[in-house]
C-alpha cells in the first residue's frame, strides 16, 4: 500500500478535504458541536492511516500543501483585526489585562502540575508554551530544552479542545461579552480557538487574533523566566 501512496500527492489532500467536508456535512445535519469538522477530519484521517497501515510520511507528502496556507491565513487575521480597530482602542485595558492574566495562569498552572506529577525539567518546559501558536511554541520548547514533538502534540490537543469545547465552556462559565470570549479563546487555544471565535462573531474573531500575537510574545518572555523555577 505504502509504495503506491508514497509518491501520491492527491491521497493526503483528498483524505484531508473529504474528511473535513464530511465533518462539516454532519455538523450541519445534526447541528451538534460534537461533529466538529476539524475533529472529525483528524479522527477519520488517523483511523484510515492506522487501519490500512499507511505511513504518516505518505499522507504528509500531499497533505503538507494545506499546511502551507497557515501562514497566509494567519497574516489575513490582520484584516478583521483592522476592521475592529475602534473596539480595540476602546477596550485596550480589558484586553491587555485579560491576555496577561491568561498567560500567567497558563505558566503557573503548568508549574503547579509539574510539581504535583513530579515532571522532569524537560517535561516541564515541554508544557510551558502549550497555549500559544505552534510555530512559537516549538521554538520556545527547543530553546528551553523540551521535547519539541511532544510540545507540538500538546499544542494541537489544546487547540482541538478550544475549538471543539470552547463555546460550551464559555457558556458554562458565563463569559458572555464578545470581547471576553475572543480573549478567552485566543489566549487559551491560539489559532484553533480563533477559528472558533471567527464563527462566533466578528468582534470575537478579531480580539482572538490579537490575543494570539500578544499572548505568544508574552509567553516567549514568561516561559524563559518560568523555566528557572523548576
Amino acid at each position: 500500500m505504502n509504495s503506491v501512496l508514497e509518491d501520491s500527492i492527491f491521497f493526503g489532500l483528498t483524505l484531508s478535504f473529504l474528511s473535513y467536508f464530511l465533518g462539516d456535512f454532519l455538523q450541519k445535519k445534526f447541528k451538534s458541536q460534537i461533529f466538529n469538522p476539524l475533529l472529525i477530519s483528524i479522527v477519520i484521517s488517523i483511523s484510515v492511516l492506522t487501519i490500512f497501515n499507511i505511513d504518516y510520511d505518505s499522507y504528509y507528502n500531499g497533505a503538507k500543501y494545506i499546511s502551507y496556507l497557515l501562514t497566509p491565513a494567519t497574516v489575513a487575521l490582520a484584516i478583521p483585526l483592522y476592521e475592529q480597530l475602534n473596539t480595540l482602542k476602546k477596550n485596550y485595558k480589558a484586553i491587555i489585562a485579560g491576555i496577561l492574566s491568561g498567560v500567567l495562569t497558563s505558566l503557573s498552572f503548568v508549574l503547579v502540575m509539574a510539581l504535583i506529577f513530579n515532571f522532569s525539567h524537560a517535561e516541564y518546559v515541554t508544557f510551558l508554551p502549550k497555549s500559544i501558536s505552534t510555530a512559537i511554541g516549538m521554538d520556545v520548547s527547543s530553546e528551553l530544552g523540551g521535547y519539541v514533538s511532544v510540545t507540538v502534540a500538546i499544542i494541537v490537543i489544546t487547540g482541538i479542545i478550544g475549538n471543539v469545547a470552547g463555546s460550551g465552556i464559555l457558556k458554562i462559565f458565563r463569559i458572555t461579552s464578545p470581547i471576553a470570549k475572543g480573549i478567552a479563546l485566543g489566549t487559551s487555544s491560539h489559532a484553533m480557538g480563533t477559528a472558533k471565535a471567527m464563527e462566533l462573531g466578528e468582534v470575537e474573531g478579531a480580539i482572538s487574533s490579537l490575543s494570539i500575537v500578544v499572548a505568544g510574545i508574552i509567553t516567549v518572555i514568561g516561559a524563559s523566566i518560568f523555566a528557572g523555577f523548576m
Binding site: G98, S101, F109, M113, T158, I169, L170, S177, A184, T187
Partner: peptide, 24 residues
Amino acid sequence: VTILSTILVMVVSGHISQLIIRHT
C-alpha cells in the same frame, strides 16, 4: 494537565476582561 489548563486559562482570561469591561 492539557485539558485543565486550557479550561482554566479560558475562564480566568475571559472573566478578568469581562469584569473590566463591565466596570468601564
